[in-house]
Amino acid sequence: MEQKTVLHAQNVRKSFGARGNVQEVLRGIDLRVLEGEFVGIMGPSGAGKTTLLNVLATIDRSTEGSILIGDADISTMKDRELSAFRRDKLGFIFQDYNLLDTLTVKENILLPVSLGKMHKRVAEDQFKSIADILGISELANKYPHEISGGQKQRTSAARALINKPSMVFADEPTGALDSKSASSLLGTLEDVNKKRGVTIMMVTHDPVASSYCSRVVFLKDGMIYSELYRGDKTRQAFFQEILKVQGVLGGDSVDTL
């Protein structure tokens, strides 16, 4: 069975700063993500994990290189097209949840489809099935300040999934959660990935979190250092492997504080 390519990045470079003081954060990244993959991005602080995610997720622009998501070349799109693309094709989960605290859980989740063409009844059905999977149906009318961090992150995940995105980007989704909520959320994400076939790319520094992935990409100094595939290994075995690579990679002592 041949899998479709969802994301194809070629020679992506990104540098910050003005002339004379240019700092190159991404130094030529080639990456191909297939449909249904759950890709983790790991690496020490300053390796360019979040920058890579932002660039791939169209939030930031690369300085060089081409990025294809589906058939669309996002590196040549205008800002306006990018916005529409993000809304229709991508989903986001952030470390700080980024929920609108003026909206209820349901209103937050339905926000991305509010200006789209999705019919209200379809949106309602979609909301119900996603809220069921994520276990937040009961919270629909609660405000973010009334629910726990884990519930907030589930809400955030539901919001990312509501528009049936071709790809979901998650930036340290477990960064602000306690270990129990974190593993429960990751389990759900794994579930969503397997059962609904949603492609996910997740940046994390936590080896436990990345052990839920089907593949882990390690970055170092703006370049891909190595890759690990989980294959048929158990999560525990995969975790050990990740730890090994991380040990070789080093420099993570600050990050795991």
Binding site: L100, L103, K106, E107, L110, S114, K120, E124
Partner: peptide
């Protein structure tokens, strides 16, 4: 609206009620 508040209302009504 039963949760289907939409962007414009989210930025106006919800913010005002808040």
């Amino acid at each position: 609206k039963n949760g289907h508040l939409g962007l414009y209302n989210s930025l106006s009504i919800a913010s005002i009620m808040h």
